[in-house]
Design a protein around this nucleic acid. Structure first.
Lengths: 231, 231
DNA sequence: ACAATAGTGTCTGTGAGACAATATGGC
DNA sequence: GCCATATTGTCTCACAGACACTATTGT
């Protein structure tokens, strides 16, 4: 029998990043304005192709995170694969999306790339009528849902806070990410009940008004028992 | 400035399938024996490369499911990406793993491919010392964990059963997948409390001994409220 | 004193798990 | 009757959510 000349197709592999942070008590996602076609001028997630055939996928995500957002050392995890044949008009591109969680950051980070990066409230960019390149709307939806779920079972919320924080500040993280209002008294009890979640460090005073709050820092535990269930 | 001749690398995209079923009250996974190098002769997950540049990833998974296991119409969902640079000695291969859930099936399905497919107990193949091609051990671990989690929140367990079933048969599904023993009385109440999970169809008799059990069939609901929590 | 926020206590309903008790078949 | 399994009932504990109440600051 003759040799089979069939060879499997080779495709382009990209990484896209959903980088979430908290600004002014609202959940924001980092977006860049595309400078080239397709979708020139439209907002898009930071991302790009594998640098070479031997680059690790997560390493590529970290590289893009540094190049386009100037960030390093933040929590990063795989989110999913987006490989629908028609998603990129240039050809077959399969993208591995990653989720990054960053603490409060000063100003719209200027990327070392020529791209223009800016923080955008998640509510705004997901509102009907907002435009996004490719299938990035779905990727953001999935990333936000993942972040919400992780807040339930892990100590991720402390990553959104400063080194030390009050319980009401931590509550604001949960309220902003989940998009709900929580009872401060029940939240207080619940957060204290999750063993190893937070540990006290000392008292502080609030700038304007009210009783000073105790300060806490992130505890040693990463998996919450019992979990912080969503309402 | 001169044009940049850099082009992103092209890689091979594969799909791998974790196909789970229940046989003799044990969770089994479908494995094939590799007929070619690398890992010739070692057990591996069914799978293969994209047929052409325009094939949808999930469509490729369904095609391999049919070709290598003779199955169609079963529940199928994406499980994750496995793309570590060294995972395939032939070169850079990124695999998108999928999870398939199949009801009880008669005999080791003979694939239309030349591969030799057989059901293997998950406990055995994950036991220390068992050999598997590539990183398929990790993929199976992830797939089993996903199936266990889905049993908690969805009506997936009924997919492992026949058209109609008793509550104790449904309990055996949970016990086999979770690998635990459950109290029949508490299980009975809990399963009845999940609204829309199962609906009664009529009585039956048991072959050997004991009181006859009512027969049920899968209800209309796919998301369980309240969920079936693992012990 | 008053406003505002921090922190504590109490109550009620729901659900999980242990396990007693009853029902219904075959033999 | 006896045995095995199915089905129902009861009890206790833990936790979520509602909300009254006390504590501690600035003004």
């Amino acid at each position: 029998m003759p040799d089979d000349p069939w060879q499997p197709p080779r495709i382009l592999l990209a990484v896209d990043l959903v980088i979430l942070t908290l600004r002014a008590a609202r959940l924001h996602v980092l977006l860049v304005n595309r400078g080239i076609d397709p979708f020139r001028g439209a907002p898009a997630l930071p991302g790009g192709f594998l640098a070479d055939e031997h680059e690790d996928i997560e390493a590529a995500a970290r590289r893009e995170l540094a190049e386009e957002a100037g960030l390093s050392g933040v929590h990063l995890e795989p989110l999913g694969v987006y490989g629908e044949p028609g998603r990129d008009p240039r050809g077959r591109v399969v993208s591995v999306a990653h989720l990054a969680i960053a603490p409060r950051l000063p100003e719209p980070v200027a990327g070392t790339d020529a791209v223009h990066a800016s923080w955008t409230p998640v509510d705004d960019i997901l509102a009907p009528g907002a435009e996004l390149a490719f299938d990035h709307r779905r990727i953001i939806v999935d990333g936000v849902e993942r972040a919400r779920a992780k807040l339930e079972h892990t100590a991720l919320a402390t990553a959104f806070c400063a080194e030390s924080f009050t319980i009401s500040e931590l509550q604001q993280v949960y309220e902003a990410v989940w998009g709900v209002r929580l009872d401060p008294r029940n939240f207080y009890r619940k957060v204290q009940g999750a063993r190893g979640f937070i540990v006290a460090v000392g008292p502080m005073r609030k700038p304007s008004n009210g009783r000073p709050a105790r300060l806490f820092k992130a505890g040693p535990v990463h998996v919450l028992t019992p979990p912080m269930t969503r309402p």
